[in-house]
């Protein structure tokens, strides 16, 4: 059997010392060693994004990284997104816009969206879609997810947006498929 390794890291702001096998992925360590099961396994090949965590400011598929590589890193998971009982704006907007159906992809989308907004507080719809393209959702067709992230960015920037349900389909999103076809996605 493989020899276990002690790893010192920071998860959601707290110092963590953990014991894992060298062959265990970070996702496995989060879920099975630390019981942080909010990060989900959808593929183990980095294609679905359900295991996305933010490491040193960048969104990362935790299934593609080994647990031992977490040493010395700052890791944020979905469990650390809310402040106490106050939801993060992204979480609140996902609920208001009904952006989840089954909800299995939601933690990954939230973490990818957080990484985006941390770097780019005022993204265009094209930038949102580009930033979320590594996360698969099979239930929603992404429409309501994109609306939630758009609304969250506006709310965080202090711009007022119409309440949920009052967002007209044709005006809520600036981007159209035509922009995609024209290559206007950066």
């Amino acid at each position: 059997m493989a020899n276990k390794v002690i790893v010192e890291t920071t998860i959601n702001g707290d110092p963590v010392e953990l014991l894992c096998e060298p062959r265990q992925s970070l996702l496995e360590v989060l879920r099975d060693v630390l019981e942080l099961t909010g990060s989900k396994e959808g593929c183990l090949t980095g294609d679905c994004g359900a295991c996305t965590v933010v490491i040193d400011g960048r969104p990362v598929c935790s299934c593609l990284m080994l647990g031992v590589e977490a040493a010395g890193k700052q890791i944020s998971t979905v469990e650390g997104l809310a402040s106490g009982t106050a939801l993060h704006v992204l979480q609140q907007k996902f609920l208001e816009h009904a952006s989840l159906q089954c909800g299995i992809c939601t933690p990954g989308f939230l973490m990818s969206a957080k990484a985006l907004l941390d770097h780019n507080p005022n993204p265009t719809e094209a930038e949102i879609r580009y930033a979320l393209a590594g996360n698969l959702c099979r239930c929603t067709g992404y429409d309501k997810i994109v609306r939630a992230v758009t609304d969250a960015a506006a709310t965080m920037a202090g711009r007022s947006r119409p309440a949920h349900g009052a967002v007209p389909a044709e005006t809520a999103s600036g981007m159209t498929g035509e922009m995609l076809a024209k290559g206007e996605v950066k």
Binding site: G42, C43, T45, D47, C48, I128, R129, Y130, L132, A133, G134, N135, L136, C137, R138, G141, Y142, D143, I145, V146, A169, A172, S173, M175, T176, G177, L180, V185
Partner: peptide, 16 residues
């Protein structure tokens, strides 16, 4: 795998 079984991503679809 989901790279080769290619389902639509956010970038493949417009507003629905």
């Amino acid at each position: 795998g989901l790279l080769d079984y290619r389902m639509p991503t956010c970038l493949d679809l417009p507003a629905l």
